[in-house]
Design a protein around this nucleic acid. Structure first.
Lengths: 215, 215
DNA sequence: ATATGTGAACATTTTCACAGCT
DNA sequence: AGCTGTGAAAATGTTCACATAT
């Protein structure tokens, strides 16, 4: 009995991240081996505890069968529904520098339901450059293309100085979700989902760990 | 009166990340404007609260002056000491694909005390390729170069299937800190600091947010 | 007057432990 | 017997509020 993806309270970030990792793990499971998986097994693979797995899922419904575990296909589709992955999302990359260019062709994105449909840059030297069967667009056309192509998520990979200005334009154009790679704190309206990937910060956390062993 | 960087208890990940963000913000502050900064001002810029700033710092010592705030140069050097950034760390990038290549020349790394000294790949087509004044090395020489160059931190940017095998080699060669970009859960001994950057997961968190507005 | 440092209160997240299905 | 779903307990993280110092 599974009441698929009921509207929940307020779900923590860490829960959502774990749900994403459960989904990835299940997609990798050799489904010829078993049709079903226990919270214990899933926890082992995800590096967490079985109670955590069950609690995370319980916020959204009852997807398992007592005494048996979770049907892998059912859990897969439940997780996809929860995470909003029953649709393909239209993505644009803004900034065709080193990192932006690397992300454009990141195969994992498409594989997991994110379709990069446009790439923008403000540098005339980069505008017109081919990628796949398309070309890098001038950011003059940002608002227009975002509307025309129905861009829902933007990967922001511009220099730190340009990031806030560009974010403001994106918000103005109606973008509701941004993944920012620039090492600055950005501000956006409440209604806009904004996440940051800060690689220098990650290295600094490693530096801290190296400097303070065994803690 | 500042008892610089006393050895602390167990510091949470979020505290370390905030300390890193305080450091970055202070480095950007125009120090001609003011010599001193309050927890309130720092919090405003970091997107947190003044109590949080003071608590984070208090785990390591007393760096401020009551009634005045924190001396910017003193707080800068305290944060650098806490985060282990008084030294330059020797970094290697393993995997010279799109993402690895983008990271090699990420200017922020060097600016913040991380020196990329070697790049490895297992693909003969990539080995020998120039980057800066150096060349991509074959991973045959991994262990040897790691020891010779004193590599302390590795940025792992190989395909998911190769990541665990490569991590095992890195650990064998004595590497104690790894930043993993492959979308797999890796396992390493306790003593090894391992962090993951999973861009598809970040997009899935955005997908969740888009699908569940205003929560 | 102003702003830190911190114990205590509060909030959130994780773990425990067990009743309830299959 | 086996494994889920979930309240209750424990642990962890954040905010309050104020004594303390300049």
């Amino acid at each position: 009995v599974s009441h698929s993806s009921r509207p929940p309270r307020k779900i923590s970030d860490s829960t959502v991240r774990r749900l994403s990792s459960y989904l990835r793990l299940l997609q990798e499971v050799d489904d010829s081996t078993a049709d079903t998986i226990s919270s214990d097994e899933l926890a082992r693979r995800a590096g967490t505890t079985s109670a955590q797995v069950r609690k995370d899922l319980s916020f959204f419904g009852s997807f398992g069968k007592r005494g048996l575990g979770y049907s892998i296909p059912e859990l897969l589709s439940a997780l996809r529904a929860i995470l909003g992955l029953t649709q393909t999302w239209n993505v644009a990359v803004v900034g065709a520098g080193k990192i932006g260019s690397a992300l454009i062709s990141y195969r994992d994105f498409r594989k997991r339901g994110f379709d990069v449909r446009a790439v923008f840059d403000s540098d005339p030297a980069k505008v017109g450059r081919p990628w796949g069967s398309r070309r890098v667009l001038s950011d003059e056309h940002l608002e227009e293309v975002i509307r025309k192509d129905g861009i829902e998520i933007v990967i922001l990979a511009v220099p730190a100085e340009a990031a806030q200005g560009m974010l403001d334009r994106l918000v103005g154009a109606g973008v509701k979700a941004v993944l920012n790679f620039a090492p600055v704190r950005l501000s956006a309206p409440e209604a806009v989902a904004l996440r940051n990937v800060d690689m220098a910060m990650e290295l600094e956390v490693l530096s801290y760990a190296l400097s303070n062993p065994s803690e």
